[in-house]
Design a protein around this nucleic acid. Structure first.
Length: 593
RNA sequence: GCGGGUGUAGCUCAGUGGUAGAGCGCAACCUUGCCAAGGUUGAUGUCGCGCGUUCAAAUCGCGUCACCCGCUCCA
């Protein structure tokens, strides 16, 4: 994939254009001028998405014994969003730098001192001009010329190419207006004056109930995960499962993104596929198994083991999810980013981002986080409903421990708490209380959370599959050939069925027969118009992996041994093979599932 | 939200004050013995939307909406 930005933007535009032209993705409400940050999936997009959704659902729950499905509602009691922290972190008061429009949290502005300078505007020899007043702070000790240079650079950066070179920008009517001490009204990096504090709530607010008063305010869920936590106990109590086990869910989530962008990559309404996989705390594993298995490079992750702690479970899910991506054709374009201690939220032990190369850059497809017991504990304390589970095996094992062994476990944990670099360490009393519950077999499970975005997965699959080549025919005429190399498992149409010629009734009749035979089992497209080459090309463009042509051999014209055989064409190689009609279904089913 | 750019047929785009166009695609018919063949015919646009200037606006001005790029954020 080229890395030149212009080529990449052009590539993205071609993909958007193909998506519209062939019915993958449309702009929402297009006839009314669109609607910001939301997209509709057309006939082929709906099939593609459905295939991805099904692939995920099958690998995550139906093919496993230890994961259960859930389908929770989008609207929930708003208390959930307070407990989860979304109301706080998603509704910050933000202030904007008047110079660069960079936003900072209103409560995160460090006090600064210096001289306040004001300009009436700026202009450059290119004819560009900016008429709004510019107010900025010279930091204490900053030389006036270096200040002016800095302001010109910031303006140039913000204005783009039209302003020309930064050094040629002229700042108009410099005026010293004030000297400030410990002011929080200037951007800590740029020095630009900050605007009014405004709430930037990323959650979509709505009213539940017809009266629409403030008391009825709730939110469209900004993620699907919280419903899993909120229903954790119900699923656990109704399903006869034991930890470790998981609950997965696919569903819509909503965020009032400030800047939706990159086509469907960041939209305001999107579909998530999330798993919360609940595991025993490491201390419980240690009590039961005598030790917690340590992860090392090359560890066998194929089969979960009883002595796995959070680290191996986390690695296991990264491995599982990687295999999934290989299975839908995204294997070669994946990258991984292991969050550093600074990136991580205070409650998280580890988080790896699975990234994928898109034309607009390498961006996140899925995050896999080890979140400890943060979420369930938060809901336990906010709802005052216990989220603990009882573990018979743990109780039995703990009963066999001596008091010294128990104390050693407690001391080990106390040492770990003391060594914490983030968040508040637990008090000794809290640690002892927690162990007391643990020795009785009760704990709040810890969680590993693989969280994927379906829409960006669909976009990744399309972008990866997109290929454009130039072809010159015998007459020297250039043509652009577009092929979507979609994995057969996700392709919206699995096979195209074509009579070689449409004016030969026997070919058409046979083709309709083959079409009917396959249609019950997979999405098949029948096409008899135009030349056979064009029909192949139309299907190549939407990623159909197979084409079946009914020709004169099928009707027995070239000898009885070829009767009831068809041409099976493979999209990527262009190769054709002769296949008996009765062998088609098993052969195709094997390839597309 | 701010700055820059863009908006004309399904797609890509031309048209810069005076009768809305091209290529490709699409539909029908004819033709066609395997990779976008050919022929004939046809459909599709109150030029993103609104207001204004003008005898006259796709074209000029203002506003607005959407998309793209940057700042920001993240599934």
């Amino acid at each position: 994939m080229s890395t030149d930005p212009k080529t990449q933007i052009a590539l993205m535009e071609k993909i958007v254009s193909l998506c519209k032209r062939r019915g993958f993705i449309f702009q929402s409400s297009e006839i009314y001028g669109g609607c910001g940050g939301v997209w509709d999936y057309g006939p082929l997009g709906a099939e593609l998405k459905r295939n991805l959704r099904t692939a995920w659902w099958n690998t995550m729950t139906r093919e496993r014994e230890d994961v259960l499905g859930l389908d929770a509602s989008i609207l929930m009691n708003p208390a959930i969003w307070k407990a989860s922290g979304h109301v706080d972190t998603f509704a910050d008061l933000m202030r904007e730098c008047s110079l660069t429009n960079k936003r900072v949290r209103a409560d995160h502005v460090d006090p600064q001192s210096g001289t306040v300078l004001k300009y009436s505007g700026a202009q450059s020899p290119t004819g560009w001009r900016w008429d709004r007043p510019i107010t900025a702070l010279t930091k204490s000790g900053e030389h006036i010329e270096s200040f002016r240079k800095r302001i010109r650079a910031l303006i140039a950066q913000n204005a783009g190419e039209s302003a020309g070179k930064p050094e040629e920008i002229e700042l108009l009517n410099e005026e010293k207006i004030d000297t400030v001490n410990g002011s929080v009204d200037f951007h800590p990096e740029t020095g630009g004056m900050l605007g009014e504090a405004r709430p930037f709530n990323l959650m979509l607010k709505t009213y539940l109930g017809p009266t629409a008063t403030e008391a009825d305010v709730t939110y469209l869920r900004p993620e699907t995960a919280q419903a899993i936590f909120a229903q954790f106990k119900n699923v656990f109590d109704s399903s006869r499962v034991k930890v470790p086990f998981g609950i997965c869910q696919i569903g819509k989530a909503f965020r009032n993104e400030v800047t939706p962008k990159n086509f469907t990559f960041r939209s305001r309404e999107f579909e998530q596929m999330e798993l919360e996989f609940f595991i025993k705390p490491d201390e419980a594993v240690e009590i039961i198994c005598g030790e917690v298995a340590a992860w090392k490079e090359g560890a066998d992750l194929s089969e979960p083991q009883p002595n796995w702690g959070w680290e191996l479970w986390h690695r296991y899910w990264v491995d599982q999810r990687t295999k999934f991506y290989h299975g839908i054709g995204l294997g070669e374009v994946l990258e991984y980013y292991w969050q550093t201690n600074e990136d991580l939220a205070h409650y998280a032990r580890a988080c790896v981002d699975i990234l994928c190369q898109f034309p607009f850059g390498t961006e996140e497809l899925e995050g896999i986080a080890a979140r400890g017991d943060f979420d369930l504990s938060a809901h336990q304390s906010a709802s005052t409903k216990s989220q603990e589970i009882f573990d018979e095996e743990l109780k039995t094992a703990a009963a066999k421990l001596s008091e010294e062994q128990k104390e050693a476990l407690i001391q080990k944990r106390l040492a770990a708490e003391a060594a914490k670099t983030k968040g508040e360490p637990l008090t000794e009393a809290a640690v002892r209380a927690w162990f007391e519950r643990l020795f009785k077999g009760s704990y709040v499970p810890h969680v590993i959370e693989p969280s994927a975005g379906l829409d960006r997965m669909a976009l990744a699959v399309i972008a990866k599959a997109f290929e454009e080549t130039e072809k010159v025919d015998e007459k020297g005429k250039k043509e652009i050939i577009t092929v979507l190399h979609l994995h057969p498992r996700v392709a919206p149409i699995k096979v195209g069925v074509f009579p070689l010629l449409k004016n030969k009734p026997e070919l058409v009749a046979k083709a309709r027969e083959v079409y009917a035979l396959l249609k019950k089992h997979m999405n098949v497209f029948y096409d008899e118009t135009a030349s056979i080459g064009r029909r192949y090309a139309r299907q190549d463009e939407v990623g159909t992996p197979f084409g079946i042509t009914i020709d004169f051999e099928t009707c027995g014209e070239k000898g009885p041994e070829l009767r009831d055989t068809v041409t099976l064409r493979h999209r990527d190689s262009g190769e054709q093979e002769r296949v008996k009609i009765r062998d088609l279904l098993p052969k195709l089913l094997a390839a597309v599932s």
